[in-house]
């Protein structure tokens, strides 16, 4: 019975074990003097420091600031990415016209525009939102575009045979059919928006997790810095998991789900 349970939950059990093992190894390696704690701190110190930062409100303030920028940039990227993606997916000329800019955006290091954005938008939040917006835009746009473009031709033909107009086909066939692909784009976008926010905060901010990481980094206070690094990693996992969950909910809309 226990053995059977083990096999069924193998992935979960082994995964949890390896995470715990990693933490224990980290703690022991430092305690045994194999690694200088100055470089990496220890799980117990990070936990204690987390409680301190939680008590004095630092955690809430930093997470709040980061999430504020995240929500704004993700929201903007979702609206702009989906609208542009739908236009480009439906009208070929729009796609052709946008193509060079998208390619430039894809291969250019977005962060390099940081000084420009500061000049245009000012220091702090607006610049952070702008950079994270650009980070998140590409996958959302690209997935919406391909979702609309790769509309099921048989379904479209069937719809047309019932007298559907192009707008009907767009609303009834192309749009619902591309929801799962769009959701995948949003999932990728979430990770990139978070990266954008935190990276932009590394360079210039008054608050936020990235700001805390740079701030304590410059003071060489590893433990305090690790608190924010761990929170960023956890945030990334949680946000992506939420989107994966939503994505799986729309999976049955896939036209080829029967395969």
């Amino acid at each position: 019975m226990i053995v059977e349970l083990f096999y069924r939950r193998q992935a979960l059990i082994l995964g949890t074990l390896s995470m715990i093992g990693l933490l224990v190894f980290w703690q022991i390696a430092v305690d045994a003097g194999l690694i200088n704690p100055f470089f990496i701190s220890t799980p117990s110190q990070v936990w204690t420091e987390f409680l301190v930062q939680f008590e004095d409100g630092q955690v809430a303030a930093n997470v709040g600031a980061t999430l504020y920028c995240f929500v704004w940039s993700m929201g903007l990227a979702t609206v702009v990415g989906i609208v542009l993606g739908m236009l480009a997916g439906w009208f070929r000329d729009v796609e052709s016209a946008l193509e060079p800019f998208i390619w430039f955006k894809y291969s250019a290091p977005t962060v390099a525009f940081y000084p420009l954005f500061i000049a245009w938008l000012g220091y702090g939040t607006p610049t952070i939102i702008a950079i994270a917006f650009l980070f998140a835009l590409t996958p959302i746009y690209a997935n919406t575009l391909s979702g609309i473009k790769n509309i099921d031709r048989d379904l479209a033909k069937a719809a047309r045979s019932f007298g559907a107009k192009p707008l009907d086909i767009f609303l009834q066939v192309a749009l619902p059919g591309s929801v799962p692909v769009m959701m995948a784009g949003l999932r990728l976008g979430v990770g990139r928006a978070l990266t954008g926010v935190v990276v932009a905060e590394l360079f210039g901010a008054n608050a936020g997790l990235g700001y805390a990481i740079t701030y304590y980094g410059q003071l060489m206070q590893t433990t305090k810095m690790m608190v924010s690094i761990v929170i960023v990693i956890l945030l990334g996992v949680i946000l992506t998991q939420i989107l994966s969950f939503l994505e799986s909910k729309t999976d049955s809309w896939r036209v080829d789900s029967g395969r």
């Binding site: 995470m19 978070l194 935190v198 590394l202 980094g217 410059q218 690094i229 960023v232 990334g236």
Partner: peptide, 19 residues
């Protein structure tokens, strides 16, 4: 190895820059 790997793949690895 999958869980720590996925976490690092999803998480912005650039935050490790200061460390």
């Amino acid at each position: 190895i999958d869980p720590p790997l996925m976490a690092l793949y999803i998480a912005p690895t650039l935050v490790l820059l200061p460390i």
